[in-house]
Design a binder for these strands. Structure first.
Lengths: 190, 190
DNA sequence: GTCTATAGGAAGATAGAC
DNA sequence: GTCTATCTTCCTATAGAC
């Protein structure tokens, strides 16, 4: 009896939660085992490459969700403002309303850094590019103008997650994402 | 012959570098030993509490530097703009022109989280407060208005560090800190 | 104040029963 | 597909010589 898709998704959710919370170095096999309810050996059955393969799977799955829900929203139908509001709505869920950290942040320390460097770099680049295209469409500006504005959006989101994790509440994240659509569309200094 | 102050400062610099780069969980005694040139047992001689005491010392020292160089600049003499430019100049050095991570970020994962939670929270609060006071002075606005603007500044700095670490270059950090003084003083939407 | 040596335990990973 | 049992390596921490 093969494992159901629902069970696999639940398993991946638990693994993701661990890597998000404690990073790559902090994600010990014991913690991953406890979080999933599977013994270490069972995890190795599913991920022969061990911890590294689990983190790769988690990162790949998050990347797919991000492409399908964030990037496709940005390049999809609707006005630029509607698409940015769509992104913000999806981000709110993706980051647990500001409670969860970003894997691109937590996996960029320690041993995770060298392992996922290029993946992280590409993910940030794709996000900035998708945002820049929306901004160009909304403002009728050049890529040279749009790129730093798009970077600012990613910077604010990441910074808000860091601050909220630090101070222990999510108000700043909520404020930031709510202000994003309008601030990215306006031509004034962002 | 007691160890000189210069040597101690050098030692602390090396320890700081490790915790900044790999976080608390990633900072093994082996890495700390290699980075400092001292054997594990020698590190225990200086820090009987082991890794936790080293991280506490590193965090305390960074906090002192921050108070003396950043917070005192913000509350010191000069116009608000001059003080913000002073902060930016110090921050540029503090974060290695955008190459180094912030300890408040790297120590908020894994085992470090529970250990340094309140220290991190207080540090962020002090920084936001100091910035808010400058903004109030510059704009003649209320604390209610100034606080989110001050938070935005911290958010941008932290976010820029995350993005720069992710993409492997420091341009975004440079751009962000250069734009900070003027954007915090202006009454337009930050 | 630094070192070598080592204890005791937790880490990642594997073998093989069921 | 999951488990118990085990291996090796690395970890934190200590003892004691110099």
């Amino acid at each position: 009896m093969p494992t159901t898709k629902v069970e696999v998704e639940g398993l991946m959710d638990r693994l993701t939660e661990v890597f998000r919370t404690v990073g790559y170095d902090g994600a010990t096999l014991s913690k991953l085992s406890e979080a999933t309810g599977l013994q270490r050996a069972s995890l190795y059955h599913r991920f022969p490459g061990g911890k590294q393969e689990m983190a790769e799977a988690v990162l790949a799955r998050a990347g797919e969700w991000f492409r399908k829900n964030i990037l496709e929203t940005l390049s999809g139908p609707g006005t630029p403002k509607q698409r940015l509001e769509g992104m913000v709505h999806k981000l709110d869920a993706f980051y647990g309303r500001g409670r969860s950290s970003c894997l691109l942040d937590t996996l960029s320390f320690g041993d995770g850094r060298s392992l996922f460097e290029s993946h992280i770099k590409q993910s940030f680049a794709a996000w900035v590019n998708a945002l820049a295209r929306v901004i160009i469409e909304a403002r009728g500006c050049s890529m040279t103008v749009a790129r730093p504005v798009a970077e600012d959006a990613v910077i604010r989101i990441q910074g808000a997650l860091v601050l909220c994790r630090g101070v222990g509440n999510t108000k700043a994240f909520q404020r930031i994402i709510r202000s994003l659509p309008e601030s990215l569309i306006r031509k004034e200094k962002s």
